[in-house]
Design a protein around this nucleic acid. Structure first.
Length: 852
RNA sequence: GGGCGCGUAGCUCAGUGGGAGAGCGCUCGCUUCACACGCGAGAGGUCGCUGGUUCGAAACCAGCCGCGCCCACCA
């Protein structure tokens, strides 16, 4: 990190400049080694989080920035509470995404992965990773994330690969992993099978064709399909067994047009009599439903579409070799020529698309590796129902449980080159599965790799050194919380829980926090392809990391929210406010002051009480994962209490160099910085470095529990009354046209200002006069009246109008209150405290009215 | 088809049984010796609609209207 420009003095820096400060602070943190935790102690006393590993090719997006901010609040908070805290860092090899990137690069060079071969290709991807992998790590540092950067893991590093291989072999040995020819979601764009979770349904307008099939012994039937080309693979026609119309059809034989194949007419419950003609063509090779029906009835499976997205040889001439869409037209044309198209209609329906490549899924039968989930799911269900894993917000709990209850086999093999290659070897009819390659000649390794989510599922324990029983594993597993967006609840979270229980002997985390999704300003999802993305790095450059962190946390919620530039602005202002408030204090306090609460007046007791309350509230917000409340509460304290009132109240004493107020101010500042640090770490660390007597980094400060003995309801009531009165009087002044600087002579006729009358006069610009003549105006304040005496320059007409408005309001409120209290049912049934409060209120209103 | 959630000030959102809130925006005033990324004062809301429960509903219940998301193999 280059040495920054010579540090301007506090005196000159009237504006907080994050771009100057943040890189300097980030460098200090990294050099300090504070973020690294040597393993010791137990998971119960330590605090750990495993970062959701970003894709190695990725760059920081808004989701990373939000989740990074959330996790960093948690990690910094617990570190400052004195826990040994580790935030496990690393990246994911992200099989598909990374392979696609490098392939694009190759194609741009006029080459391809096939041209250079697997080995050279994988080398190329590793080079890519060395080059682009550090980018996103640097961006997390820019955000201020206090990860343990000394121990970065990668889902394809050597130790991690060992863990993956061991898990695979163990699961195979237990019989959970098996090979099957089964209907899979084939992604023609990728040239690979993908799992159910990587498929998304999209609404599509298609044409629904009705096609006549002749019956062998005379007559015909009519089937409907949006994919006429698949009829070449039909092996039956089905009707519902209860469908009276077709009872005598069952058992007869239809003839498949164009092909001539004899199709048995079968009866199956799946067929809906009311849909179309109630006669359904059965294509076990290319439709998941038909596949199941085919298995039930022992039907032949004919694959007419190949993995290359073209019609296979089985499709016959002239269709074999044609791309699917061309084949569709050709089949329709051929059927039309035979007069078999009985109808077409526009048809809107949902169709599976690949979440990875964006292409339409081609369901087909393929030989793949699967993982059975029946044994793994129940313990993972129990972990959540028993509360060993808590999910926040808890409406996601049921979503998780519903999915787990209906969990299906997981297709784990991918026809890719970048990833964990299956530890499976074939020789003729033999299959060998093992971490080490088999002895002997002639073995060939299965070319497929594992679904990236298989390796990600091991993340919380594989990163800590499993299968070795390491110190790190003993100290930090289970981790405390997993913070994530809900879109990978099944893909990742559920699988981590299953794998953690199966292999690491415990749940991988105690809490799952599901954060909101930040949408674009117009409510659409943020996405590069839609052009709706906002780059958090740009935002950090423009407004500072603290501002972005604050903004994201403040807009976070239990539901999806639109990106709010205003909240980021609020964060930027907070940083600037804190900086300038600190300048006031640091430039003003007496030399040699030691920080410590030394209350001498009611406002001192008040700010100490408010500080303790803010500390408790902030802590509670963090502990309950309510980051918006935490961030906004912090803002409210700094603006609404510390700066607007306390600093204004004590300025005269500060200028007088009163030692006690210096000590108290430094104490409040110190504690405020510590409280704010998890949310806005840079500005607080920078200010901390200017604090007299501050040693070391704020990030490493050990924070004590809030000192509840400083709570002070009496001081809060007294200063609360003062604040109300000042605001009332300022409002009055503004309304009646008092010049801003002018001192108005008044007589205070109100209770409860014994200790604060001087402050009231100063802040509302009044001159207090003990006696004097008749008032020329009256301003009601809590506890009584401020009588304005002759001599102040104001508009008497406006003053009278104000008084009369106030009377109208009071009359209305009194009427409402009286009505309420004269309602016998209210008095009888409402809680006594509520009724009592209503009576007090009425009394107060009447007093105020009388005073007027 | 099943499930979850949302509809509160011009905008983005808090508020879950006892007198409607924040930030931004808007209006007016202020070169007040920390901050004009500032200070002070204001305007602005039938809390989607209808019905119900309750002494009392923005909040709880039901229905309706509008919007979003997740899950699901109807050609």
């Amino acid at each position: 990190m280059p040495d920054p420009s010579p540090k301007a003095s506090l005196q000159e820096r009237t504006r907080y400049e994050p771009s100057e400060v943040e890189p300097r602070i980030a460098a200090r943190w990294l050099e300090s080694g504070l973020f690294h935790a040597e393993p010791a102690g137990t998971p119960e006393e330590n605090y750990s989080i495993a970062i959701p590993p970003p894709n190695v090719t990725g760059s920081l997006h808004m989701g990373h920035a939000l989740n990074g901010s959330i996790q960093d609040v948690l990690v910094r908070h617990h570190r400052m509470r004195g826990q040994r805290t580790k935030w496990v860092l690393g990246t994911d090899h992200a099989g598909i995404a990374t392979q696609t990137q490098v392939e694009k690069q190759l194609i741009a060079e006029g080459s391809s992965r096939e041209a250079i071969g697997r080995e050279a290709f994988v080398d190329r991807v590793w080079e890519w990773r060395q080059r682009y992998g550090p980018q996103i790590i640097g961006q997390f540092q820019r955000l201020g994330a206090s990860c343990d950067y000394q121990e970065e893991r990668f889902t394809l590093d050597e130790g991690y690969a060992q863990a993956v291989m061991k898990v695979f072999v163990d699961l195979y040995d237990k019989g959970y992993i098996y090979r099957d020819r089964y209907m899979v979601n084939w992604d023609p764009g990728l040239g690979s099978a993908i799992s159910d979770l990587e498929v998304e349904q999209r609404e599509v307008d298609d044409t629904l064709y009705s096609i006549d099939y002749d019956l062998e012994d005379g007559g015909k039937l009519t089937v409907s399909t949006v994919r006429p080309e698949t009829m070449l693979g039909d092996t039956a026609v089905a009707v519902n067994p209860d469908d009276e119309r077709y009872r005598d059809l069952v058992g007869r034989t239809a003839i498949l047009p164009l092909v001539g194949r004899r199709l048995p007419v079968i009866a199956d419950e799946y067929v809906k009599p009311e849909f179309g003609t109630g006669q359904l063509k059965i294509t076990p090779g290319h439709d998941p439903n038909d596949f199941e029906i085919g298995r039930r009835h022992g039907l032949e499976q004919v694959s007419v579409i190949g993995e290359d997205g073209r019609m296979a040889a089985e499709a016959g001439e002239p269709f074999a070799g044609l791309p699917v869409l061309e084949a569709r037209d050709a089949v329709v044309a051929a059927l039309e020529a035979e007069g078999r198209i009985a109808g077409r209609e526009e048809y809107r329906h949902e169709v599976p698309y690949s979440h990875r490549s964006g292409e339409r899924i081609e369901p087909l039968i393929s030989l793949q590796w699967f993982m059975a989930m029946e044994q793994l799911a129940p313990p993972a269900i129990d972990a959540v129902t028993s509360g060993r894993v808590r999910i926040t917000p808890d409406n996601h709990r049921r979503v998780y449980l519903d999915w787990m209850a209906r969990i299906r086999p997981w297709c784990i093999s991918r026809q890719l080159w970048w990833g964990h290659q299956l530890p499976i070897y074939y020789r003729r009819e033999e299959t060998y599965v093992g971490v080490e390659p088999p002895e002997g000649e002639g073995w060939e390794r299965d070319p497929d790799v594992l679904d990236m989510w298989f390796s990600s599922a091991l993340w919380p324990f594989a990163t800590l050194g499993w299968p070795q029983q390491t110190e790190a594993l003993r100290a930090f597993y289970p981790t405390d919380v997993l913070s994530t967006a809900r879109d990978i609840l099944f893909l990742w979270v559920a699988r981590m829980i299953m794998m953690g229980l199966e292999f690491a002997g415990d749940v991988p985390f105690r809490d799952v926090y599901v954060h909101s999704v930040i949408q674009a300003r117009d409510g659409r999802r943020m996405s590069k392809s839609l052009g709706t993305g906002i780059d958090p790095v740009d935002e950090i450059e423009a407004h500072g990391a603290d501002a972005v962190r604050f903004g994201l946390l403040a807009m976070s919620s239990t539901q999806d929210v639109r990106y709010s530039a205003e909240k980021v602005g609020q964060g930027q202002q907070l940083a600037n406010k804190l900086w300038n408030a600190s300048r006031l204090v640091l430039l003003g306090v007496a030399d040699g002051t030691r920080a410590g609460p030394q209350p001498r007046s009611v406002e001192d007791r008040w700010i100490l009480a408010r500080l303790v309350d803010a500390q408790a509230q902030t802590r509670d917000a963090i502990d309950s994962y309510d980051f918006a409340r935490g961030a906004l509460g912090l803002y409210a304290f700094v603006y609404g209490e510390l700066c607007d009132w306390y600093l204004e109240l004590v300025k005269p004493r500060l200028y007088d160099q009163e030692p006690e107020v210096s000590a108290t101010l430094l104490h409040v500042l110190r504690d405020t910085l510590a409280m704010a640090h998890p949310f806005i770490p840079f500005v607080t660390e920078e200010i901390w470095s200017h604090l007299p007597g501050a040693e070391g980094l704020l990030a490493g400060l050990r924070v004590e529990d809030p000192d509840l003995s400083l709570r002070d309801p009496a001081a809060e009531a007294e200063v609360g009354r003062l604040i109300d009165a000042v605001q009332t009087l300022r409002g009055w002044r503004d309304l009646v046209g008092c010049r801003p600087g002018e001192l108005v002579p008044v007589r205070l006729r109100a209770e409860g200002y014994e200790a604060t009358a001087g402050q009231l006069a100063r802040l509302a610009r009044l001159t207090l006069i003990a006696d004097g003549g008749n008032p020329v105006a009256k301003v009601p304040v809590a506890g009584g009246m401020v009588e304005v005496l002759a001599g102040g320059g104001f508009d008497p007409v406006e003053a009278e109008r104000r008084r009369s408005d106030r009377r109208t309001t009071l009359d209305a409120e009194i009427a409402r209150s009286q009505a309420k209290l004269s309602n016998q049912r209210f008095v009888d049934r409402a809680p006594a405290a509520v009724v009592e409060a209503e009576r007090d209120k009425l009394a107060r209103l009447r007093t105020d009215l009388e005073a007027l």
